[in-house]
Amino acid sequence: MQTFNLTRLNFHSPYKVWAEDNEYKFITDYEVSYRIIFSPNNDIWKEGAYEFGIFNENQKISPNDPKVKGTVEAIIEEFFLTNPNILLYQCETGDNRQAMRARLFAKWFNEYENKSRFFIKVSVLHDDDIDNYIALIVQKSNPELNNILQTFNDFIGYFSHKPE
């Protein structure tokens, strides 16, 4: 993955973002410290796919802060400006709030002013008693869009109908 242009990113981001060990960090007005990661994910595609993660580093309660949304949007936008790849987002399940996170992520995306440039698909994988929410985000201009969508649908279908 190519390194982000932090000057461009910070021009569009409400919060100042900095890079540290291939991660992107910012601190909110409420002193909530966030860490954003992009990890290669080879579970579905051999290359060109990254998993996006958002982590509240200091576990402070984050109020409904629109600047967090704007900062995350700016970071995702920068990802696609420097890496025309596939982005996956899986909601963290440790506290059973993954459905709420999936709704919030979908709400943010639906309010995003450049959403028409992207295709997003959110799916739920049922594993034992846990629902895992996974989202695929890809630029509509990607020449492999149809193949990417078919591969993602096949992957989700395989895990939705696991043999007993």
Score class of each variant (00 low, 15 high):
T3A: 13
F4M: 14
F4T: 06
F4R: 02
F4A: 04
N5T: 07
R8A: 11
R8C: 04
R8L: 13
F11Y: 12
S13N: 04
S13M: 06
V17E: 01
V17D: 02
W18N: 10
A19K: 10
A19W: 05
A19N: 08
E20W: 10
D21N: 15
N22C: 09
N22P: 06
K25Y: 15
K25W: 14
I27D: 03
T28R: 01
E31Q: 08
E31G: 05
S33C: 09
R35T: 15
I36G: 00
I37E: 12
S39P: 05
D43V: 08
I44E: 00
I44Y: 03
I44A: 02
K46G: 09
G48V: 08
G48H: 06
A49Q: 15
A49L: 06
A49E: 15
E51F: 09
F52C: 03
F52D: 02
F52E: 01
F52S: 03
G53F: 07
N56A: 04
N56R: 10
E57R: 11
E57S: 13
P63I: 15
N64A: 15
D65L: 00
D65Y: 00
P66F: 08
K67L: 13
K67V: 09
K69R: 14
G70H: 06
T71R: 00
T71W: 04
T71S: 05
V72E: 00
E73K: 07
L81S: 09
L81Q: 11
N85P: 06
L87V: 08
L88H: 04
L88R: 04
Q90A: 10
Q90M: 10
C91V: 08
E92R: 10
T93P: 00
T93W: 04
G94E: 08
N96A: 12
R97P: 03
A102N: 09
A102M: 10
R103Q: 12
L104A: 13
L104D: 03
L104W: 08
L104I: 15
A106N: 08
K107H: 14
W108G: 02
N110W: 05
Y112V: 03
E113R: 11
K115F: 03
K115R: 14
S116E: 14
R117L: 13
F118Y: 15
F118L: 02
F118K: 03
I120L: 09
V122Y: 05
V124G: 00
L125P: 00
H126Q: 12
D128V: 12
D129N: 13
I130C: 04
I130F: 02
D131S: 12
D131F: 05
I134E: 01
A135E: 00
I137N: 02
V138N: 00
Q139Y: 03
Q139P: 02
K140V: 08
S141Y: 04
P143N: 11
N146C: 07
N147T: 11
N147L: 13
Q150L: 12
F152A: 00
F152R: 02
N153V: 12
D154Q: 11
F155W: 14
I156T: 04
I156F: 03
F159D: 03
F159P: 04
S160A: 12
S160R: 12
S160N: 15
H161N: 14
P163M: 09
P163W: 10
P163K: 13
E164S: 11
